[in-house]
Design a protein around this nucleic acid. Sequence first.
DNA 1: TCAACTGTATTATTCGTGTTAGTACACTTG
DNA 2: CAAGTGTACTAACACGAATAATACAGTTGA
Lengths: 122, 122
Amino acid sequence: MSKITIDVKSRTPIFEQLRHNITELALSGILAPDEQLPSVRALACDLAINPNTIQKAYAELERDGIIYSLPARGSFISSDLSAAASSAKAEARNSVSNAIRQAKLLGISKEELLELLNREWR
Amino acid sequence: MSKITIDVKSRTPIFEQLRHNITELALSGILAPDEQLPSVRALACDLAINPNTIQKAYAELERDGIIYSLPARGSFISSDLSAAASSAKAEARNSVSNAIRQAKLLGISKEELLELLNREWR
DNA sequence: TCAACTGTATTATTCGTGTTAGTACACTTG
DNA sequence: CAAGTGTACTAACACGAATAATACAGTTGA
């Protein structure tokens, strides 16, 4: 029972799903810092996809500072996620603003959006 | 000077951009009901893309009830956009909720999101 | 020691889909 | 009646994602 799941029928590439998926698990603390990730081959076998695809996702995650890889040792969650966390927050704030702007454009009232905001806090 | 613009370097398909673009112009009232759209060939020439791509976008827009096409006449904005408007609103509400949920997950406070909401209303 | 595992690298191939190209038909319009 | 309209069709191309098959150097635990 891995915490990592994939939808092969999605239009977003598998390696992108992996990147987003693991990033979320890391930043939310579900995967602890320095915790070891499944090996490239093991995860590929588990998800029934090609190891190269896992490798590609891991490479991008390392480039983003989410994980670090030690040859012949394994891949692990970064011990310092502060940089990744802040950029993720910035991105999230941007998504909220864009969604709100779009909603306003369609004539949705400020009060209704406020209700949506309250709904998530209970 | 067309109101319709395209970014050929974007990763989202051109026909999707067209669909989203024209939908927005229609629902925001920038394009009036029963107003005639550029012809398939004219818009293709204007945007320097293939007529088939325009045709594909127009076909989807007609399927979505955003426009209607009369053979040998042209394509026009639908006179009744209420159905499309309400489904667009539902989609927008969903986007806002998702964005808020993601922001909350990353530890962004309710107050900060409230500030983002207020910012769009001035 | 050594078999089994690790990340990493490389090359070739397959596959899906967006896009282009070219042509054609039936119809309306000035 | 020429020019323009939506629509349809087939073929080809382009690009990226994903697969397949190896290979190498290093670590690790029995």
